[in-house]
Amino acid sequence: MFQLLIQNRLSFMKKIVRHYSSVIVIIAILFIWQWSSKLLSIPKWLLPAPTDILNEAVNGWNTYTHHLVSTTYLSIGGFVIGVSVGLLVAVILHLLPIVRQAVYPLLILSQNIPIIVLAPLLVIWFGFGVLPKLIIITLVCFFPIVVATLDGFRQTSPELLHYMQMAGATKGQLFRKLEFPHALPAIFSGVKIAATYSVMGAVISEWLGANKGIGVYMTLAQSSFRTDRVFVAIGFIMVLCLIFFAIILTLEKVLLKGRMHTNG
């Protein structure tokens, strides 16, 4: 009886540990960080303690909210444009196989070039306004979407395609009723990558020249050795990415409801 109780307790603990293990790791790291920075008295400009960062995050709220809002809008705008353009291009390439044959290898090749290196050029051409920033984010979001979507279309089950054709489906029906829904999981994996890229793209585009945004806040903090603020910025970038990710995950769950990962 007693043993059973212990066993129950143990398995319960195990469940908690398994489920929350990553949270526990993060908390442990934060504790070690906190203690070591106090014990070794590391200067605040080199590595601020987590409590210092939290303090700045709470008290400095007014100094950075407008940066935060600006970056959020910028990433969302760039993300929406990038995903739309990416989807559009993928659909066009899919429906025009001749064009796809010519363009697809170039797309794959261009994926190996970090798009960010084009940023200085865009600044030269379009200045420091919103436009070059949106172009950068659009570019970084665009490729994962196009490649994932085209892959999704290409993997359409030949059996299902065969059935639909025998049933007399038109090209449009094939696309709407078979190829597009079939590609949705692949599209979502592209969208997830694009979401995190969009935040990164926004921050980097702000580094190159802007008057507000988390990127600007970071550059200012860095040049005045406000390391705590740099960490606050990093924290918010992470939170922003996670929120985007969570929204897309929820959307995916709703849209792909009832679907198995295999075909049946």
Binding site: M166, P181, H182, G258, R259
Partner: peptide, 18 residues
């Protein structure tokens, strides 16, 4: 195409449809 109704060797149901 589409003049007859046909069931292939495998059921070929769309997995995302009820």
């Amino acid at each position: 195409r589409g003049a007859i109704s046909y069931t292939p060797q495998s059921p070929s149901l769309l997995p995302w449809r009820t």
